[in-house]
Every structure is written in C-alpha cells, then in structure tokens.
Design a protein around this nucleic acid. Structure first.
Length: 355
RNA sequence: UCUCGGGUGGUGUAAUGGUAACACUACCGGUUUUGAUCCGGUCAUUCUAGGUUCGAAUCCUAGCCCGAGAA
C-alpha cells in the first residue's frame, strides 16, 4: 500500500523538488499551495520574491510544477488564519517595541497548521504532509519524534519550525533534509522542472512594512543611555535591537546601534556595540517538541535569530512554558520578540520567544 | 566698534607649502525565507575674491560668517 502525501508547494524550487523526490520514491503525491495574500492590502512596490504578496505568479508556478510532475493540485484558502495569527502578531509585537518573526508563526500555525487542516476539510486524504524545508524529523526508539537540523547547515530552517509538536512531527516529511541546496537545484534542472532557475525567496514581504502595520507616524527622540537626545524617529516600530543603519546620527567616533526600544516613552535608546551584549534573557511561550520541559536545567546551544551562530548556554525551565537562558558568553542583540531555539547537537530541544 | 580665535565633504576631526586622510552618516551592491549584523563600493579641490610661489587647505591682503572677550 502506498501512502498518500500532501506536499505544500510554494511555487519555488525547494518544494518542487520535495514533491519530485517523494514521487520518485513511489508515493502518491498531492500538491497544494496556500493562499494567504489579502487583496485589501496595498500591492507591495518592492522587487523580489517574498512570502507575503500578490500570489498569482506563485500559484501559477506551483500549478506548473504539479502539471510537470503529473500530480493533483489544489489552492487552499488560509487567508483568515494568516491574518488572525501572523499579521496580528506582527502588528501587536511591533506596537510594543518588540521585533516579531513572522516566519516562526507562519510555519507553526499556518503551513503546518491551517494548511493541512484546510486540505482535510476540503476532502483530501493523506497520511503525511511534506514541505521543501531544510530540516529532518527522526523517530527515536522511544517513539518520540525529534526535529533535527538539515544536512545543508547553511540552509537549515529548524530555527523557523521549532514550534512543531509531536502530533505535527509525526506526520511531517522533509524530503530535502539530506540534500544540499546545490543538489536540489541540480535535481530540478535535470528533471526539467519549470522553476529550476527561480531565485531563492528571501523576504517576508517586499513592500513597505508600514503598509502592513498601518500605524500612523509617532515621532519621538533617539537618545543615548543617559537620555541625551541625539536624533528623532517616526515610530519605534521602524527599529530593532542591533540595528545600525538608518539612525542618521553622524559625527560619532564609533557606529551607534539600537540598544533598546522604550515603547512606554516612545524612545529609541542607542549606544556603541559594547552596549548590545546580554548575558542572559527570559524566554516565554516556550515549547518542548518532545512533549514536556526537562526536569532540570540543560546545557544547550541557543540560536537567537536566524543566521546567529548558536551560543553555548544553560537553560533553566520555569514551569512548562517559560525559561531563563544564561549564556556562557554574552550575546549581541538579544531581541524581545525573536525566538531563542535550543539545540542539543543536531536536535531541536525547544525554544520560545525572547521576553 | 575693537581684540583674539576659527572657518576643510551631510557630521566630527586630520593634513601648516607639494596635488585632501580617518571615523561617523547617507546611498548603491553582496550575504541572509524575519527590512538585524556583517562585507564591498561611492560621495569634498578645503567660506569668497585677489596675491606670493614651479606648486597652497596650508603664506599674504580684503571681504563675509561663527565663537569668545572688551565700556
């Protein structure tokens, strides 16, 4: 008996090759793309490919891939959930002077949440759900599913999907986990997939974030640690901790970075790089993919943003959904709203949102 | 009005006779499935007008402007 696999297509190379590989392995494959773009939003002006944007082209690409592979293809409406969960979080976090990571929310609750649910609601039946993410899932001898890093360390996406739970992990397949990006492109090309030379998408949204946030300007001071005004801003949501560009403060001996966002007083606090290091941080909304929090503190490697080199740290669980992270060496730009993901070797042990 | 000091790119400084340096900002590009970091690149003929000199940001003269002081 063949398992039926639903593959989440994006219109890009990775998901296309994921579907290709599954098909070659003899699975019956169904393709689906989720629709998240809300036409009431202004059309982004920027160039390039982003997750959120008018999606006719992506749907067309995904459809072409499905045709090339000879598989079923469906468009699943996830707009409502996307708006409620991802965009809502995006706005509320920025409003509080925090820096959200929409990819984390989208993956856990839309791609690996609303999407398969919508598919089943539409009558599709499948045993597993696959995507083109660079990550791996392994089932241990103890029956527990573990999320592990991809072979291609540079492309590993576990940081974005650490919130997946046992139920989700049990039905997920990541066909690309053992491949390098270069190999994936090669496969796409050799199989004549129509999108083999499509550039990687990189952004969440390629327009002006203000279009999504819809916040009116709220000017305030940019100050140094002592509170001395150095410049002005039009809204603290235009800044994130560690940001250097765009401050417009000249004549300093060394570059200034955003050290803190003070939502209450509508101020951006800046300082030299040396002001950006934190020895520890509190993490909330913590999840433990294996099921429950460790009984005691654990030594792990913690990644506090995508492209951060994981840092040695000790995590002290506080109840089931909070924790305190103490870094061995202070880390730069520990940013509230971003995720801290805990790794033991290649395995994702848990993670949460930096408080 | 007088005296002293000073006027170099968007900002802060350097170069005191040999064709303008450094940092910051800004912009452009690269890296990056979070507009972060990081990396590369670009941006001044030195307040104005004369003069001295083979040659001046650097010396001289006048003007303009800024700061400090002065019945």
């Amino acid at each position: 008996m063949k398992n039926k696999i639903l593959v989440g297509l994006s219109g890009g190379v990775d998901s296309a090759v994921a579907a290709l590989l599954l098909k070659e392995r003899g699975f019956e494959v169904i393709g689906a793309i989720m629709s998240i773009w809300d036409d009431s939003l202004p059309r982004p002006t920027g160039e390039g490919h982003a997750c959120l944007g008018p999606e006719e082209d992506d749907i067309e690409s995904a459809s072409a891939v499905a045709r090339a592979l000879g598989i079923e293809f469906h468009v699943l409406d996830c707009r409502e959930q996307y708006r409620k969960i991802v965009l809502e979080n995006f706005r509320s976090e920025y409003a509080q002077g925090r820096t959200p990571n929409p990819c984390v929310w989208c993956n856990s609750y839309i791609k690996f949440g609303a999407l398969p649910v919508a598919a089943r609601k539409q009558g599709l039946s499948f045993s597993h759900f696959a995507t083109g993410h660079y990550a791996s899932v392994e089932r241990g001898e103890d029956g527990i599913y573990r999320l592990k890093k991809a072979k291609d360390a540079a492309k590993d996406q576990t940081y974005f999907i650490y919130r997946l739970n046992q139920k989700q992990l049990s039905e997920i397949m990541f066909p690309l986990g053992g491949y390098l990006k270069t190999e994936v492109r090669e496969l796409a090309k050799n199989s004549n997939l129509p999108i083999h030379d499509k550039p990687d998408s990189q952004d969440f949204y390629c327009g002006d974030y203000g279009d999504i946030l819809k916040f009116p300007n709220r000017p305030g001071d940019i100050v140094d640690k002592k509170g001395a005004p150095l410049g002005r801003h039009n809204g603290i949501w235009n800044y994130t901790i560690g940001k250097r560009k765009g401050l417009g403060i000249s004549g300093e001996k060394e570059p200034l970075y955003v050290a803190r966002l003070d939502a209450k007083n509508n101020r951006v606090i800046v300082g030299p790089k040396s002001d950006l290091y934190s020895a520890e941080c509190a993490v909330e909304n913590v999840v433990w993919p294996e099921g429950k929090a460790p009984g005691s503190s654990v030594r792990v490697l913690v990644k506090i943003r995508q492209a951060h080199i994981p840092a040695e740290a000790e995590v002290f669980p506080a109840g089931s959904n909070a924790a305190r992270v103490v870094f061995k060496n202070p880390q730069m730009s520990v940013t509230p709203g971003q995720s801290a993901v805990f790794y033991q070797g290649d395995t994702v042990l848990g993670g949460g949102i930096i408080a």
